[in-house]
Design a protein around this nucleic acid. Structure first.
Length: 801
DNA sequence: AAATGACGGGG
DNA sequence: GTGTACGTCATTT
């Protein structure tokens, strides 16, 4: 039997002690198929220390917990050197770590940590989300793959569901042990159909609301919908860390199963460092929060998204230009307990989150999908990957195709060594702080990728004695005669981008063309970071250091040329420079650009980023030699605001600190008036000194994330909670794992001693709020404008800007 | 100076 | 899960 369609996901089952590859295949007929490949086995390589034959190694490796299924000699290049290795094949992926650690006695092991499903995709050159024809046969009630070939079939339409839950939260933070899920909204596209609905168990007179009996039914109805709509991709916002996690906990408490899977397997959470992820057998979970955080900070939305918090609301507003209705999160339980109007408001809010999410998905998923197609990684992994991990995977694929052994990840010692020796970063010219009019910004297009291509920079091309080479400003030689994976991939990407741009001109409505170009840009720009990333398999100090060294040379040249042409050079960082037009006009700036570019190598180009009406410049003083921070705010002629490097304080700061910081930033951006901003800070400090500020403005909210007895260090929030429990003002369970709102009072010596729960505080420590809250929050911005603390506190005189 | 713990997103 | 995971900041020890 033949099926035409696309691969949605690849994983494996442990089937009778062996790993069995499973492919979730979406047919062009709209049906999803669970396909297996019984002919693929896990393996790793061993480069032996001493001569031994394959049979001997097989015998040496056999043990009670794991044994080799097969050992055979293969020829591969290890670090560019032709070598004979043993390929040790096993039955189960679980045997690989066991056998490879045993095998280290006999030599160096390689490729022992490549996940089985990825190994399968790499070795079979399978690219998910592209068209394939699968030849399959049925055995034991399962469909087995006989062959799988690329085809030119039509794009497959996936069935997608976007969802969001609401939770009853009388104490602020919902507690899965107590607080029920009260509503689930979803919208979907499935087959030719689309729709949106809210599920809940109170009766609400809205046509999009569907009522069920209780929370258990809410869950089962949601699961039924996912199954009935035959969903391929389930998307949410922070759903891995919240919605799905919460539903799994609730389901366990309610004694029901919560499994959204399509095929054999669970719905479960996995934690990978910072990122939590959801696995649903046969479907893909795409958490748009992770996508926004890791990948999609590109293009026109870059500044807006960097500047704002990455809440669903702010991301939606940034990309749509529309305002999103919202409710205070802490009011949700009140709306649920309220009357008809309140319930309707809650349902509408719940629905609006799913619809906003759909918009975010439509904006960013094309880039994610193109990243999957370009790297060959599955969507479920791309959606939770950093760009470094994508480059890692891309290089593994290319290395395997070229018969090159994939270098191992560094061990802890090596990693620490790398971290201790940072690579000299980019050139930064710190600007004279101030406010300037009429600016122009020039950027080198893809400076680092261009450098890697132009000078053939790659760990494998570094040479000591070679005849024909490029010598970087660091004195590192790169062999011109040898090819490297990185320049080769980057060249190919550059070529693809040019061809995509031509197609895009003819089909400007094809979002996937634009997305593909963006994806290639994201990947290209990540190679340099990967070369210098401590966990990198292809780490190279020589390469990364040479890239930045060349980069410094180029940007300095551009700045010097601009100065010679009579422009004021205000600022330069890495690959961009900001010039003062002075008495010159735009045409003069463009003429300079043209002249400068005519002298650059072929694939290098300095581009116009934009002209700006005004810029507020803040000079970040460089600490140490490392990468300096970019800090400035620009207003374009069209009113577009571009902000770099300002960090806002987080939620565990007092309201007065956050509000004052926001006001300072607004005044500086909108009015360009630093004096006025400083005056606001001074007046807030004055009010604090005079004791006029309400305690609610001063409360600091921090969650106690552990049990009260499990702390080693007495933090202010812990101290405040403990005191309240000891005095009998609070029960232990009321403060444990809860968000603690405390005020720093006058009584006590350390901050912890002074901390009291907001409701029991009767004074505040003005010095603390001035020196530890308002001043640090606002000085993040104002110190860059050469204000100092004493001056804000009214103790000194103002420095000149 | 080193260790500890929280945030981020979500409700 | 072919495991061992982010970067930064404030406060305590």
């Amino acid at each position: 039997m033949q099926i035409e369609g696309a691969i949605l996901d690849i994983d494996y089952l442990l089937d009778k002690e062996r790993g069995l590859i499973r492919v979730t295949f979406k047919g062009g007929d709209g049906k999803a198929y669970e396909l297996f490949d019984g002919g693929f086995w896990p393996y790793f390589y061993l480069l032996p220390n001493a001569e031994m034959d394959a049979d001997e190694l097989m015998r040496l490796l056999s043990g009670v917990d794991a044994s080799a299924k097969e050992v055979k000699a293969v020829k591969k290049r290890v670090g560019g050197v032709e070598s004979t290795l043993y390929k040790v094949v096993v039955s189960s992926p679980l045997e690989v770590p066991k056998l490879s650690s045993r095998a280290t006695r006999y030599g160096m092991c390689y490729e022992y940590d490549i996940p089985f499903a990825k190994r399968y995709a790499i070795d079979n050159d399978i690219v998910p989300l592209s068209s394939y024809v699968a030849e399959v046969e049925e055995r034991d009630g399962r469909l087995f793959i006989k062959s799988m070939k690329r085809s030119n079939g039509n794009a497959v339409n996936f069935n997608i569901l976007w969802f969001d839950i609401e939770v009853y939260n009388p104490l602020g933070v919902p507690r899965a042990g107590k607080d029920p899920v009260i509503m689930i909204s979803y919208s979907y596209k499935s087959g030719g159909r689309s729709g949106a609905s809210v599920l809940t168990y109170k009766s609400i007179a809205k046509d999009f609301v569907h009522s069920v009996k209780n929370e258990k039914e809410l869950f089962s109805e949601f699961i039924s919908k996912v199954k009935e709509l035959d969903i391929d991709i389930i998307s949410g916002y922070n759903t891995a860390n919240f919605d799905i996690k919460y539903m799994l906990e609730r389901a366990q408490l309610l004694g029901i199963s919560f499994n959204l899977s399509r095929f054999e397997g669970d719905t479960k959470l996995e934690k990978h460092g910072l990122v939590e992820r959801v696995k649903i057998a046969g479907r893909v979970h795409v958490d748009m929060y992770n996508v926004v955080k890791f990948i999609s900070i590109v293009g026109a939305t870059e500044n807006i998204l960097r500047f704002n918090n990455k809440t669903l609301k702010s991301v939606y507003e940034a990309i749509s230009g529309n305002k999103k209705t919202t409710v205070e999160k802490t009011d949700i339980f009140k709306l649920w307990d309220g009357g008809r109007k309140e319930l309707e408001e809650l349902a509408e809010y719940n629905l609006s989150d799913s619809l906003a999410l759909q918009k975010v998905y439509d904006t960013f998923s094309p880039i994610t999908i193109e990243l999957a197609r370009e790297t060959g990684d599955v969507l479920s992994d791309v959606a939770v990957s950093t760009t470094g991990q994508l480059v890692d995977y891309l290089l593994m694929r290319h290395a395997a195709m070229a018969g090159e052994i994939v270098p191992n990840k560094p061990d802890d010692n090596e990693m620490r060594k790398r971290e201790r020796n940072p690579i000299e970063g980019a050139y930064v010219k710190t600007p004279e702080p101030g406010i300037y009019d009429n600016l122009v910004v020039f950027d080198f297009r893809g400076l680092y990728p261009s450098i890697i291509i132009s000078y053939n920079i790659d760990p494998a091309t570094v040479c000591k004695d070679c005849a024909d080479y490029y010598e970087s400003p660091l004195g590192v030689k790169f062999n011109k005669e040898r090819g490297g994976i990185m320049p080769r991939i980057l060249k190919e990407f550059a070529r693809k981008r040019i061809s995509i741009k031509q197609q895009y001109k003819k089909n400007p409505d094809d979002v996937y063309l634009g997305a593909r170009s963006q994806a290639l840009k994201i990947l290209s720009n990540s190679f340099y970071g990967y070369l210098g990333y401590a966990r990198s398999r292809w780490y190279s100090r020589d390469c990364a250091g040479s890239v930045t060294a060349y980069g410094r040379q180029y940007i300095k040249d551009a700045m010097a040329a601009a100065e010679q042409n009579g422009f004021g050079v205000l600022y330069g960082d890495t690959d961009s420079t900001i010039l003062l037009l002075g008495n010159k006009d735009k045409d003069a700036a463009l003429a300079f650009l043209k002249g400068f570019n005519s002298k650059l190598p072929e694939n290098m180009e300095l581009e116009l980023e934009d002209f700006y009406r005004r810029g507020v410049f803040v000079g970040k003083k460089m600490e140490g030699g490392g990468g300096a921070k970019k800090k400035y705010a620009l207003i374009s002629e069209s009113g577009r605001i571009k902000i770099k490097g300002f960090e806002l304080v987080r939620r565990d700061w007092s309201k007065i600190a956050r509000d004052t910081q926001r006001r300072v930033l607004e005044i500086i951006l909108q009015e360009g008036n630093a004096e006025k901003a400083a005056a606001v800070v001074k007046s807030v400090i004055k009010e604090l000194r005079e004791g006029k500020v309400k305690l609610s403005e001063l409360a600091i909210s921090t969650q106690l994330r552990k049990g009260i007895g499990n702390y080693d260090v007495k933090s202010p929030e812990l101290a405040a909670a403990k005191k309240a429990v000891e005095r009998g003002q609070k029960r232990r369970d009321e403060v444990e794992h809860a968000v603690i709102s405390y005020v720093v009072t006058k009584r006590g010596s350390s901050i912890s001693d002074k901390a009291e729960l907001e409701e029991f505080a009767d004074s505040y420590d003005a010095d603390y709020y001035i020196n530890h809250q308002v001043i640090p929050a606002t000085m993040r911005i104002l110190k860059e404008l050469n204000f100092d603390e004493d001056e804000l506190k009214g103790l000194g005189t103002q420095k000149k800007l």
